[in-house]
Design a protein around this nucleic acid. Structure first.
Length: 690
DNA sequence: TGTAACTCCCCTCCG
DNA sequence: GGGAGTTACA
């Protein structure tokens, strides 16, 4: 629902004749793909053909007569589902397209539009993203009188985080506060009051946040009348990346599969990296207990990486405390050891990465088969500048999203109040765009509109301060005009164009860096062209936000332009490249400073680094600078140690490298506390004379 | 009383 | 580069 339809062909070719999958899979993969009925847990290490197995399992089900629309495939991103179903088409033909595939949230959305009314959820609800939800909580907070800056009170993001954590994990708020925010424990009752208001507010305003999508789905499934109806839609449910699901999602699966128990989940506990979304790797560890009679199949043969890369990865993860034991191995011969690269500072790290990737490129590796990974999006800033200077094309995945930019949210707010006149968050945002109207006035207007059933008249009549009058009239005229025009007919782009007649001037006045922001709006307009109506556009953009710059490129699919990939490790999940660079492998960066004091978080950082290393097929380089500029200290300082995860055992599996240019300027004076033999490093590959 | 301009501070990961 | 907190001004 609501996504642009992209079909490769106008007509479907005849289904291929049945194939013998035993020839195309290894014994474990084959057993998993052709498994019969009942709960199945596939524990699949990195690069062991997890996706392939799942694709073949879908194909097997269809080939053995299961109707495609009775199969549900839940994946981490919508794109992953499309990719898998596309591959299933190759195996068993176009029927695979009718398999229901998508994310938990996307599927929840589809089902709620269809069945939500019966449970008291109107069909035309608006989906809020995380920022919107926090803004709405802020309104609840102000309403209840917690707005005054008296004692230390949690900010809206914290309020929302605790709420979301409670919903997704089922842990009582008091417990979350005690464990993670002891300084706010005394405010527990206030949290409760704010959450009650927030929940009521969402219901009155017809707003639904990410957590609600799952909660409502879960509640519908547990509804005596509607639950069985939804559960009866599917005979088989398959879940990818199970290690990144939370207890709420597990509960949904119980409701969905309780009757037939045909549930297949695939995952790798060693790659669980989404605990901040309430996911727990214990979910996958406990699956066999949760679903009695589970069959478990482990995939350990790796088809991606060379053995030296696997050796380093295995060494890294072997320190993890709790896990299904598995050791990756490969039949691939040879391969060089991963490089551990010491540089003097960030600039030299950048220089190393650029020179080395150009070298690999000259050896014939396309840029798009090379990736630079990092813990957090901002860590690639220096590299991006250099790549731009050198005119090396790149695309960046993850990090600060396009949709979080203030000017984009502004424009979406116009569309949203047209779609849902009760959208308080968007009204609040729009009102503050008018000159002379700030938080207090906006709040007063919104509450008076709430009393008047959110009619546009109510907006028209409010006594704006004199200098806002003209803008008020223009805005009112625009909204009336857009609302009068029925949505549809591919005209969301037109809507945005009209909005911009009014808004571009506001943008110019309020923000700096006007040109790139206007360019963002051009892109937003282009994206909107792919959707049939405003509702579909707004839902899609909330549920499947464009992931990187590539998604925003208009018209092209990216096939013809060869570009290096820069990505956060999180966004690199499930992907692979011929050559991978992991930069900033230093304590405080990776693992991040705030994880250092918490064992669970530290373990997750370790798994995250494991994900990073296992993305590489042939070449892997882990780099770290010895000095950094710290904004906190306002000065250069020496880094204490490289990432604690790269301990002696891991270093043994790696080749130590110091870039040649390190010698062109004075070497760092002191050996870092982590304790490497710098002189030995200097002798390596790059340091050797000639 | 409320807005707007100013300063300071701190900064993950994502559906 | 944005949000929270502070201050000057209508």
């Amino acid at each position: 629902m609501g996504e642009p339809k992209v079909y490769a062909r106008a007509t479907t070719p005849p289904d291929p004749s049945p194939r013998d999958f035993a020839q195309e899979l290894n014994p474990e993969q084959h057993a998993a793909a052709t498994f019969g009925a009942g709960p199945l847990l596939i524990v699949a290490g990195a690069g062991t053909g997890k996706t392939r197995t799942l694709v073949y399992r879908v194909a097997h089900l269809l080939q053995s007569g299961v109707a495609p629309e009775r199969v549900l495939l839940l994946t981490f991103t919508r794109r992953a589902a499309q990719e898998m179903l596309g591959r299933a088409v190759q195996l068993v033909g176009g029927r695979s397209r009718q398999v229901h595939g998508g994310t938990f949230h996307g599927t929840a959305h589809r089902l709620l539009r269809r069945f939500g009314a019966a449970a008291g959820l109107p069909g035309d609800f608006t989906i809020m993203d995380q920022g919107d939800a926090a803004d709405l909580i802020q309104l609840s907070r102000a309403q209840l009188g917690y707005g005054e800056p008296r004692r230390r009170f949690p900010k809206k993001e914290t309020l929302h985080y605790v709420y979301s954590r409670h919903i997704n994990t089922g842990i009582p708020v008091a417990e979350i506060l005690a464990e993670e925010f002891p300084r706010f424990a005394e405010h527990e009752a206030d949290f409760g009051r704010i959450y009650a208001d927030f929940t009521a507010r969402k219901a009155e305003r017809n707003l639904v946040d990410y957590d609600d999508l799952l909660v409502f789905w879960c509640l519908l499934l547990e509804h005596p009348k509607i639950g069985p109806k939804i559960a009866a839609l599917y005979d088989h449910v398959l879940v990818d990346e199970y290690q990144d699901t939370n207890v709420l999602q597990a509960r949904i699966l119980r409701g969905l599969c309780g009757a037939h128990r045909n549930l297949t989940v695939v995952g790798d506990d060693a790659q669980s990296i989404y605990s901040f979304r309430g996911a727990s790797f214990r979910n996958i560890l406990e699956f066999p207990r949760e679903f009695a009679g589970t069959t478990m199949i482990a995939l350990e043969q790796n088809y991606r990486s060379t053995q030296p890369i696997l050796d380093a990865s295995n060494a890294l993860i072997s320190r993890a405390a709790e896990r299904f034991t598995k050791n990756l191995w490969t039949r691939r011969e040879g391969g060089e050891r991963p490089w551990l690269v010491t540089t003097r500072d960030e600039q030299e790290q950048t220089r190393f990465v650029v020179e080395r990737l150009l070298e690999l490129h000259e050896e014939g590796i396309p840029l798009r088969d090379i990736a630079v990974l990092f813990r957090a999006a901002y860590m690639s800033a220096d590299l991006e500048i250099e790549l731009t200077n050198r005119k090396i094309p790149y695309e960046k995945w993850g990090g600060l999203k396009f949709l979080e930019a203030a000017h984009v949210k502004d424009v979406l707010a116009f569309l949203r109040v047209i779609e849902n006149p009760r959208d308080e968050v968007s009204w609040f945002r729009l009102l503050q765009l008018l000159p002379g109207i700030g938080e207090a006035t906006a709040r007063a207007v919104v509450s008076s509109m709430a009393e008047q059933a959110w009619s546009l008249d109510a907006f028209d009549r409010f006594p704006a301060p004199p200098r806002a009058r003209q803008a008020q009239a223009r805005l009112s005229g625009l909204l009336a005009e857009l609302r009068a025009r029925p949505s549809g007919g591919n005209e969301v782009t037109g809507d945005i164009a009209r909005i911009r007649v009014l808004y571009d001037d506001i943008l110019r006045e309020r923000y700096d860096r006007v040109e790139p922001r206007l360019a963002d709006l051009d892109q937003l307009q282009a994206i909107a062209g792919g959707y049939p109506d405003r509702g579909a556009f707004l839902a899609a953009i909330a549920l499947e936000p464009p992931q990187g710059t590539q998604d925003l490129a208009t018209g092209t699919t990216g096939e013809e332009n060869d570009a290096l990939v820069l990505s956060t490790v999180h966004s690199a999940k499930g992907k692979e490249w011929d050559a991978v660079f992991l930069i900033w492998a230093v304590d405080g960066w990776f693992p991040m400073a705030r994880a250092l004091g918490d064992d669970d978080e530290l373990e997750e950082e370790r798994r995250l680094m494991y994900v990073a290393l296992t993305r590489a097929r042939d070449h892997l380089a882990v780099t770290y600078p010895l000095n950094a500029y710290s904004t906190r200290r306002g000065a250069d300082y020496t880094i204490d140690q490289l990432s604690r995860f790269i301990d002696a055992g891991v270093r043994e599996t790696m080749e130590r490298v110091v870039p040649k240019f390190a010698e062109e300027s004075p070497a760092p004076s002191a050996e870092p506390a982590g304790g490497f033999d710098l002189r030995a490093l200097m002798q390596r590959r790059f340091g050797e004379p000639g």
